[in-house]
């Protein structure tokens, strides 16, 4: 997996990362943020279970988050 971003940052002076890449598409960034916030803060599943699945997924996919 490449460790070099394959798209440039959309924010001048900021390095390329998920947020600054998504900034190329402000509409999608807002919609993604709203969805992601709801996913993490609402629902019947407890937070440790959500976090456990997130960490496991990140390890398998070499995600740095």
């Amino acid at each position: 997996m490449s460790t070099v971003p394959r798209l440039p940052s959309a924010v001048e002076g900021q390095p390329a990362h998920f947020g600054t890449l998504l900034a190329h598409h402000p509409g999608l960034a807002v919609a993604f943020g709203s969805t992601y916030a709801n996913f993490w803060t609402q629902g019947v599943l407890d937070h440790p279970t959500k976090e456990t699945t997130r960490i496991r997924n990140a390890r398998i996919t070499d995600c740095g988050y």
């Binding site: 598409h25 919609a31 709801n38």
Partner: peptide, 18 residues
């Protein structure tokens, strides 16, 4: 999960449109 379904549907629709 109606609270999640709505923003998710919006995100998917926007993605498709773009």
């Amino acid at each position: 999960r109606s609270g999640l379904a709505e923003p998710l549907a919006d995100l998917r629709a926007q993605t498709r449109h773009e």
